[in-house]
C-alpha cells in the first residue's frame, strides 16, 4: 500500500488576491457576482459541470473570496461551452457565462491556462484569422489548433476532413470578406491604440 497521501489545505488571507474579485467584477456582465447566494443552480444546470474540477458555484464563491490562482488554473472556465443555461436559470440574475468569459480573458492575460490546452489556442487562432481576413475558417483554425496542441490527433482527423472537403463543407482557402477590408482592420487597430477604451 502506498504511503498515506497528506496534503495541507488551509487558506491564509494573505494568500488571496483581494483585487481579483474587483477585476472580474469590472468586466461587463460580471458585476453582479456579489449577488450570488450559492444555491448551486448553475452547477446543476450546466451540461458539463460533471467534468469540471470546480463547479460554477465554487468558481463564483472562490472568485468572490479572491482565490485567483485556483480559479484561473481551473479547467472550468475552458469547459464552459457558452450554452447560457446558468445565466438563464440563476435566481439572482448573475450572468455566469459572462463571468466565465471574464475569467477566460484574465487567464489568457495572466498566461494561467494549461499548456497545450486546446481551447485558448483555438480562441487565439480564431482571433488572428478574423483580423487577417474578416472571416473565420473553421477547417483551417481547427487544423492549426490541433497541430499546436496535439499533432498526433491530426492523423485521426484526416478522414473527417476529407469527407467535409468532398461534401463541400470545408475549403482550403479562406473566403475573405468583400469590400472594405481596410475598414475592419482600422477598427480593430483603433481598439488596440485606444487602450483607455478597454
Amino acid at each position: 500500500m502506498p504511503g498515506l497521501q497528506i496534503q495541507r489545505r488551509v487558506k491564509y488571507q494573505e494568500e488571496l488576491d483581494a483585487d481579483f474579485p474587483r477585476r472580474v467584477a469590472d468586466m461587463p456582465g460580471a458585476a453582479d457576482l456579489n449577488r450570488c447566494i450559492q444555491c448551486g443552480t448553475c452547477s446543476a444546470t450546466c451540461p458539463v459541470s460533471s467534468f469540471m474540477d470546480l463547479t460554477p458555484r465554487r468558481v463564483v464563491a472562490m472568485t468572490r473570496a479572491g482565490f485567483k490562482e485556483e480559479v484561473l488554473r481551473s479547467n472550468t472556465i475552458w469547459l464552459c461551452a457558452s450554452c447560457y443555461s446558468c445565466t438563464v436559470e440563476c435566481p439572482k440574475g448573475i450572468k455566469i457565462t459572462d463571468v466565465m468569459y471574464a475569467l477566460k480573458r484574465l487567464a489568457i492575460q495572466e498566461r494561467a491556462y494549461p499548456r497545450h490546452f486546446p481551447t485558448p489556442v483555438l480562441a487565439r487562432e480564431f482571433f488572428h484569422k478574423v483580423r487577417q481576413t474578416g472571416r473565420s475558417n473553421e477547417g483551417q483554425i481547427a487544423t492549426v489548433m490541433i497541430l499546436k496542441t496535439n499533432p498526433l490527433k491530426l492523423l485521426r482527423q484526416i478522414p473527417l476532413g476529407l469527407k467535409l472537403l468532398v461534401k463541400g463543407r470545408m475549403s482550403l482557402w479562406t473566403e475573405k470578406m468583400s469590400g472594405n477590408k481596410r475598414q475592419l482592420q482600422d477598427l480593430l487597430d483603433y481598439m488596440d491604440t485606444h487602450k483607455e477604451l478597454r
Binding site: 489545505r9 488551509v10 487558506k11 491564509y12 488571507q13 450559492q38 464563491a61 473570496a65
Partner: peptide, 20 residues
C-alpha cells in the same frame, strides 16, 4: 499578516477549505 490581529478560523464550507 496575522500578527497583532484577531484570527478567525472557520471552514469555508462552500469553497471546501479551512480559512484563517
Amino acid at each position: 499578516a496575522e500578527e497583532g490581529k484577531l484570527v478567525v478560523s472557520a471552514e469555508d464550507s462552500l469553497i471546501g477549505v479551512t480559512r484563517r
